[in-house]
Design a protein around this nucleic acid. Sequence first.
DNA 1: AGCAATGATGTTATATCATATCAATCCCAA
DNA 2: TTGGGATTGATATGATATAACATCATTGCT
Lengths: 161, 161
Amino acid sequence: MSAIEFRDHDHAACMRSTMQAAEAQCAARGLRLTPVRRRALEILLAEHRALGAYDLLAHLSAEGLGAQPPVAYRALDFLVKAGLAHKVEALNAYVGCVQPGADHAPAFLICRGCRSVAEAETLPSQSRLGDAARAAGFRIERSVVEAEGLCPACQKGDPDK
Amino acid sequence: MSAIEFRDHDHAACMRSTMQAAEAQCAARGLRLTPVRRRALEILLAEHRALGAYDLLAHLSAEGLGAQPPVAYRALDFLVKAGLAHKVEALNAYVGCVQPGADHAPAFLICRGCRSVAEAETLPSQSRLGDAARAAGFRIERSVVEAEGLCPACQKGDPDK
DNA sequence: AGCAATGATGTTATATCATATCAATCCCAA
DNA sequence: TTGGGATTGATATGATATAACATCATTGCT
């Protein structure tokens, strides 16, 4: 994997292509990417960071797109269910998915310096936890794999990236 | 690993030996296992389930061991820092550690039927996420590995185990 | 077009999880 | 025996999340 999130890249293009992919997904699956949902996704994708629901709500309400918590939570719920965003459990925060499409079990690298979040893939069934689950007769339905630490930029003492 | 949490076992003995190990740990490291902390750990170990901080508080206050949230959170904070309990991020809840001792990066199998939690070990550096981290130059400091699903008993339609 | 069913949004209120702060107390060591 | 650090008690508040219900929009049916 590439962890593009931690590297310099053409972020405008990155966002455009991700939004296009999201739209294609919704069209293909009959999901409605309404203005609030679309804007919520754009906000989540604006930086490769996790945003709290109330942070998102602040952005939305500044744009007149709703002022109460349920607005943000409903948009997040839709995006997460549609696989367009993920919840980062260790932060109680949400991040836009840069590979919308295939169902996937995401894994995150979370920088505690700049709060950037990079997404990788897991195969829980191939992990040691998968071994343990098989041995115990446990059926895994969803997995949460998150690592906190320091991204390359923050290791160099540049917490703003 | 054995996932003793999902199997019938002599739980009284299980708790006794875990509490002894916890005491030994504290003695060896100069930590004070005060009455509130000790009781909190016993409550967490009473079943192999995750308890919310306020669930724990309810037990404690029923025994006259404090009535306000900070009591529970302070006890949990101590236990987690001492490695005697863990936070289950996916549930915002806490579970007693059945292998107190060595610093470890725990991984959990969480049953959504009966809320039982089994603890396994991870080696994040050996996982695909570890590969991704190395490739990205990311330094992992802490990892969260949790799988939700159904334990053997709940797969058989026995949600009370 | 008219209409019903479903989905989406607006709004109020409240539930749940967690911490800041400061005073009082305990415990050990010098 | 007293002083400093850790622990506990108590009040208040902050942060995250959902329940419930009214209204509005979209779609599909006739």
